[in-house]
């Protein structure tokens, strides 16, 4: 409970910071004026641009972190993350193909296509990673994910490169950012994220049972396959919807649940809400960092999360015994 409160306060603080810092520093009174709707002058304009961006970072971070936490629960694998398993790249490729060949136009159709791409990739990676006698070991899943991600991102380049019209915004389909967020994109993706969150939270109890191992869970009356499928669907909806509006962002879904587990233990009913808050904090902070470090330019948030997140990935690999991994 205390952790929940602390994280909420931290999230609010980082949101305020995100609105006030950037390429241009803005004073508190100007922020308040801008929040009240004023758009006079550069300062107010800058703040008006930063508000949707901040919200986007918060909901995208929350979505990715919950998605990662659920994927770790479903696969019982400490290295699961929508980025590492290639799910976000799959979503990205689906959107790019839709744009290039099927003339996708509406934001909602992006999101639906991205969710389909994410689902297909997740299924594929899980099947490839769980072939063989000992099932889906973390190593096999991580390798299958990394290989699939590499393949799909080659395809993304191959689709995008000849098409100048979509190549303009192409970088965002390979490296995610929240800079382009608008109030419209937030309101489009919002309902999808809400559905995803709801599914994941409803499955929290089932995920706790799954953690005991399939046989014990089945013995306790859990319908293992059904729980796994529904929870994975929720995670895929979250990852796909976020990727449709931000592009692929890796490692948020890996880092945040691990940190939250240290604080709150493995109970998914606490872990998921905490991860949502933590993900919002991490992505917003990474976005602020990206704006401040490279003034007057910006670093895409996915670059920052990779540089923060990859060492955590390596630390997890080192900590676990290879057999257990």
């Amino acid at each position: 409970m205390l952790a929940l409160l602390t994280l909420t306060v931290a999230l609010l603080v980082i949101m305020v910071v995100s609105v006030s810092f950037g390429s241009r520093e803005v004073g508190l009174d100007d922020i308040l004026a801008a929040l009240a709707g004023s758009t006079d002058g550069f300062d107010h304009g800058a703040v008006a641009r930063r508000i949707p961006r901040t919200w986007m970072a918060v909901i995208a971070g929350a979505g990715l972190a919950v998605s990662g936490a659920v994927m770790q629960g479903v696969t019982r694998n400490p290295l699961a993350d929508p980025g590492i398993l290639g799910v976000t790249t799959g979503a990205s490729l689906a959107v790019v193909i839709g744009l290039a060949w099927f003339g996708l136009a509406s934001a909602t159709s992006y999101i639906l296509v991205a969710i389909i791409g994410a689902g297909a990739t997740a299924t594929f990676v899980y099947i490839v990673g769980s072939l063989g006698r000992d099932g889906a070991t973390p190593l096999k899943l991580a390798l299958a994910g990394a290989a699939t991600a590499a393949a799909l991102s080659s395809f993304v380049t191959a689709v995008v490169l000849p098409r100048q019209d979509i190549a303009e915004g192409a970088v965002s389909w390979q490296i995610g950012g929240v800079g382009g967020a608008t109030a419209a994109s937030i309101s489009t993706v919002g309902p999808f994220l809400a559905v995803g969150f709801a599914i994941c939270l409803l499955m929290a109890k089932g995920l706790n049972t799954l953690a005991l191992g399939d046989e014990l869970a089945a013995g306790l009356g859990e319908r293992v396959g059904r729980t796994r499928a529904i929870a994975a669907f929720g995670a895929v909806v979250l990852a796909g919807a976020v990727t449709a509006v931000t592009g692929p962002i890796a490692f948020v879904g890996l880092v945040v649940p691990h940190v939250c587990r240290l604080v709150a233990g493995p109970d998914h009913r606490w872990l998921l809400p905490l991860s949502a808050l933590g993900g919002g904090i991490l992505l917003t902070a990474a976005d602020v960092l990206g704006r401040v470090v490279a003034r007057p330019e910006e670093i895409d948030v996915a670059i920052i999360t990779a540089i923060i997140g990859a060492p955590v990935f390596i630390a997890i690999v080192r900590r676990h015994k290879v057999r257990a991994l």
């Binding site: 390979q174 996915a302 540089i307 990859a310 390596i314 690999v317």
Partner: peptide
């Protein structure tokens, strides 16, 4: 191999930057 995958992810984002 796993450590290498992590390191590669980090370095690729340096290239992107």
């Amino acid at each position: 191999v796993l450590v290498g995958i992590g390191v590669a992810a980090m370095l690729n984002s340096v290239t992107y930057y």
